[in-house]
Nucleic acid binder design. Structure first.
Lengths: 168, 168
DNA sequence: ATTAATTTTCAATATATTTTGAAAATTCAG
DNA sequence: CTGAATTTTCAAAATATATTGAAAATTAAT
């Protein structure tokens, strides 16, 4: 397979993959494009490469920066801003985990905590089952939370082998 | 908080939570409803409870059955079908993991394998970086795949005991 | 075999999400 | 400070996704 074709395929598939996980297709595609670009790109280059509008690039780039996956790069003597993606996949993964945990898991656990205390007869079958289900989801969530916490803090070692240090 | 209110809140939040993870809101809500229902429900009861159409209930119930999260229940002497959800949250979680792995992670790893072999000069910076990025994503994916495989096969001790050891 | 109850399908419709593009805001060189 | 280059915003338009509801198919009782 030729490089250009493979790049296209990767960008397109990464976008589709993201969609299945609740991530905006274009955001995933921009991320993919920056992952396989050796040099930082400008908004115009991204527009051209993916044939999408300026506003779309701008908004999604900002989101990606918010997710900590993309950085602005200032190139001396250049007026335009450039953008680059973290190439160390381990860092990318932990960053995504960290953000989703913060944005979604933590609030869910908090909510479940609020739903645990139900007024009424503790012997009531309905109440019993409800508290049981809520309690166990919360427990599972809390476990996952702690596990991910450790995972994020762990160093790259368990992700066996050395990756991509050359591009940093 | 009253039970009815808490149920409502749980169903609604579970729906919103699902949405963030690429799961149809209604499907998540039906699942939540069945999770907190002591007895199996009919399509009509689900329609009423969530104020959604018959077709919607039917399609999403079928999806949920496809995900292995909901079962048809035959009640002797009753013409209508009843539906119930697995209440053991550990089983629910492993089932979801298993399905998403099969439906999404495995195909992605397969694709990455195909993108790894690029024609051309192996010394070319573009080609080098591309193969490096694809390779490392594939490696991470494979690692996650294996980890989840073990997780799925493990019994509930993972949940109650300490999953954390693995990453230390 | 008939028919009433129930489930399933799917084209049409409604809703939610994403994208555009031009105007406004900002930045910075001269 | 001025104004051209660049970035940002956001209402309107386009697209994608979910939902409806009635007709068709299936099921099971008589």
């Amino acid at each position: 397979m030729k490089l250009a074709e493979a790049k296209q395929q990767f960008i397109s598939s990464w976008g589709a993959f993201g969609t299945q996980w609740g991530i905006n297709r274009t955001m995933a595609q921009i991320h993919a494009l920056l992952l396989v670009s050796v040099n930082p790109l400008t908004q115009d280059e991204i527009m051209q490469e993916l044939t999408i509008s300026r506003g779309n690039v701008n908004m999604n780039i900002r989101d990606l920066i918010g997710w900590g996956l993309v950085d602005r790069v200032i190139i001396a003597g250049e007026r335009k801003e450039y953008f680059t993606a973290e190439k160390d996949i381990w860092k990318v993964a932990t960053q995504i985990i960290k953000e989703r945990k913060k944005r979604e898991l933590d609030p869910m656990i908090k909510l479940l905590g609020q739903l645990e205390n139900i007024e009424g007869d503790k012997k009531d079958k309905e109440i019993q089952q409800f508290t049981e289900v809520i309690g166990s989801i919360k427990k599972l969530g809390t476990h996952a939370d702690k596990t991910l916490e450790v995972l994020i803090k762990a160093d790259e070692n368990w992700f066996t082998g050395s990756i991509l240090k050359m591009f940093k």
